[in-house]
Each structure stands twice: as structure tokens, then as C-alpha cells.
């Protein structure tokens, strides 16, 4: 169990833990799971004028999964949604020095932000053109 200092830091002081109203049209919600280990992750973004103004997560899983989602919520705040959609799991692996057995945790966080963006975009597309 050789967690890096950054993983431990995020695990002990996770940023942006919490929930937003998922029925809000400005909120995108991504819920993803890692079947082999039973981790589940919820990541939400609030978008205003194409920019992510807030991000929250709840992750029920190992330290690396919590750190990966915590890091992503920190990164995406203030980002344009197109830029946030470009986040790659390899960036998370590098930042947190994740070992090979924990790479799937970073994949989960990448999937979660992509799913949240997709959810937001589908709400905008389906929403009324008020």
C-alpha cells in the first residue's frame, strides 16, 4: 500500500465533497462504477456561460479513487467545458503518482467528468430554448 503523499493529502482533505441538485438544468451529473472493485463515484458540475463554476463529488471507494475525483473537481473549476472534456486519465496518474494497479481509479474519474459533461449537454439540448 504505497500511496503517494498527494493521494494521502487528497484522501485526508478531500476537496469539494458534496452534492448539487441534479434536477437543476445548469448541473451535470456523472455516476460511474468500477465493477471489478465495487467503487462508485458521483461527480457533478455547475456550468454558467460554458464555464464550470463549481464541482462536487462523492466517491465510495479506495483512497486513489477518492483522490482522483477530488483532484478532478479542483482542476475543472473555472475551466470551459470543452477543455474539461479533454482531461485524460494519464494526467491524473502523473499528478498523483498512481501505481499501475490503481490506474483504473483515474480512468473512473475521467469517465465521471465526461459523463457529467454529457449529462449537462443533453439537458441543454433537450431543454427549452427559453
Amino acid at each position: 500500500m504505497a500511496y503517494s503523499d498527494k493521494v494521502i493529502e487528497h484522501y485526508e482533505n478531500p476537496r469539494n465533497v458534496g452534492s448539487m441538485d441534479k434536477s437543476d438544468d445548469d448541473v451535470g451529473t456523472g455516476i460511474v462504477g468500477a465493477p471489478a472493485c465495487g467503487d462508485v463515484m458521483k461527480l457533478q458540475i455547475k456550468v454558467e456561460d460554458g464555464v464550470i463554476t463549481d464541482a462536487k463529488f462523492k466517491t465510495y471507494g479506495c483512497g486513489s479513487a477518492i483522490a482522483s475525483s477530488s483532484l478532478v473537481t479542483e482542476w475543472v473549476k473555472g475551466m470551459k467545458i470543452e477543455d474539461a472534456a479533454e482531461i485524460q486519465n494519464s494526467q491524473i496518474v502523473e499528478e498523483l503518482s498512481l501505481p499501475p494497479v490503481k490506474i483504473h481509479c483515474s480512468v473512473l474519474a475521467e469517465d465521471a467528468i465526461k459523463a457529467a459533461i454529457k449529462d449537462y449537454q443533453s439537458k441543454q439540448g433537450a431543454g427549452s430554448d427559453s
Partner: peptide, 19 residues
């Protein structure tokens, strides 16, 4: 966790219930 031969991803409804 291999996408083809590994454990299948749970359905979205299941994950929402789990959260």
C-alpha cells in the same frame, strides 16, 4: 477490469441506486 473479458459495468440505474 478488461472492457471485453472483465467484469461488466453496472447499469446506470444500479449505480444511481447504489449512490
Amino acid at each position: 477490469s478488461d472492457p471485453k473479458t472483465g467484469a461488466p459495468a453496472p447499469t446506470q440505474a444500479f449505480l444511481v441506486d447504489m449512490i
